[in-house]
Simulated assay, not measured.
Amino acid sequence: MISIIVPCYNEQEALPLFHKEVTRVLQEMGESYELLLVNDGSRDSTLDVMRTLAQEDGHVVYLSFSRNFGKEAAMYAGFCNAQGDYVAVMDADLQDPPALLPKMLELLQTGEYDSVATRRVSRAGEPPVRSWFARRFYQLINKISDADIVDGARDFRLMRRSMVDAILSMSEYNRFSKGIFGWVGFRTYWLPFENVERVAGQTKWNFWGLFKYAIDGIIDFSQAPLSVASWFGIGMTFCSILAILFIVVRRLLFGDPVAGWASTICVIILIGGLQLFCLGIIGQYIAKIYLETKHRPHFIVAESNRKDAALIR
């Protein structure tokens, strides 16, 4: 059986179109399947659409969160409730083409791969600034972390049960799925496709949201920022020693006091700024530790049409 996990946040317009298209593709494949629709605290009629689809289609299982927990929590809830031998993650806006599913399943059934992941080979329709920052992010995180993330990688992938179980074993609260997919390893085939425009509705990601998501990914999978803070400290200490020697030698040999308070203020501001920057980096890691130690649930399901669904995890 194939389980399709679909995180949804304000997707009342796109969800019926997605259900129609993915159902057509899955029925043509001739495999048994389930559609796990996860309502991530939507403020529109997404939940009503899910209820209607569940009444009309026995393959539809919906989980509705008590509030908005974020896409990562929605994906994790889907993994916890997926019952298929193969599990896929897809967006409801049809930017992840359901037509790729037969090819993905065919590749997995060869036995050569454990996961078939998708990557966009073009960013048509995306703002140039966002595309540039996205490419720089992928280059940076691959250099400073153990996560293997391909440029243009999407969350859309089809996995064997063994890989899903490995992902579930990583129960960390601060989740960055793109990094988790790469960290667990397994044999992955990257399937390229052209960028597809959203079929309906508005994107939920703005530039600031994507920037914070990128920072979370770097902190979750790399200790490099802490190393940078340490090297800043070592560098500034070395520069301070040189400055002290210069001032002492100048005073002893030439009897020339150091003139000007402006340069002194500039140095104080520079050092103070670097100290605050380094403290900010350390603070981000401490905040992540703080959230982990609370052991709060990743999600809380307020409503579902599956009686044995995992409601809190």
Rank of each mutant, 00 (worst) to 15 (best):
W132S: 03
Y173N: 12
Y33N: 00
I180E: 12
G179E: 06
S240T: 15
V121A: 08
V249Y: 13
V22P: 01
F277P: 11
D308K: 15
L252M: 13
S304A: 07
L270T: 14
M170H: 13
K178P: 01
F277L: 14
T110A: 01
S263T: 10
E11Y: 06
E106V: 02
Y62P: 02
L274C: 12
Y62K: 03
F246S: 15
I281Q: 00
T46H: 05
R135H: 05
S3I: 04
V121F: 05
V6Q: 02
L35K: 00
W183P: 00
I282R: 13
M104R: 02
A310L: 13
D44Q: 08
Y113W: 10
P127D: 13
E292N: 09
I265D: 07
E72T: 12
N142C: 08
Q27L: 11
L15C: 04
G179D: 08
D114S: 03
L140Q: 00
Y33T: 02
S263Q: 09
G58C: 05
L253D: 02
C80E: 15
L158A: 05
V6A: 10
E126A: 11
E56C: 02
G84N: 06
Q139T: 10
E292A: 04
L47V: 06
L36V: 09
I141K: 01
Q83T: 15
N10R: 12
V60T: 09
I4M: 13
L100Q: 06
V60W: 13
G70V: 05
V228I: 14
V184H: 05
A82L: 07
P7M: 11
W132Y: 11
F246R: 15
G125E: 12
D155R: 11
P297E: 14
Y76M: 13
F156P: 03
A262Q: 12
N174V: 11
P7V: 08
V38S: 11
E31C: 13
M236L: 15
D220P: 01
S115P: 00
A309F: 08
F69Q: 03
I144W: 01
E126D: 14
M50P: 04
C80H: 00
R157P: 07
V60S: 08
G209A: 10
G233W: 05
L107F: 10
A200L: 05
L35H: 12
D148A: 07
V301W: 03
H295M: 10
Y86T: 04
N39L: 03
A73M: 02
V150T: 06
K20H: 12
R119D: 03
F176P: 00
A82I: 13
C278R: 06
P127W: 08
I5M: 07
R51E: 15
I282Q: 10
S122T: 15
A229W: 10
I234A: 15
F18M: 15
L35T: 03
E11F: 01
L274T: 08
Q95Y: 07
F176V: 11
P192K: 06
V184R: 00
W132M: 09
E28N: 06
A153F: 02
F238S: 11
L107H: 09
M90N: 00
I247L: 09
V61E: 13
L26Q: 05
Y9Q: 10
D256G: 05
L291C: 14
R136M: 12
L15S: 09
G78W: 08
I271V: 13
A243Q: 11
I269R: 11
F176M: 00
V87R: 04
K212I: 12
Y9M: 11
V249L: 15
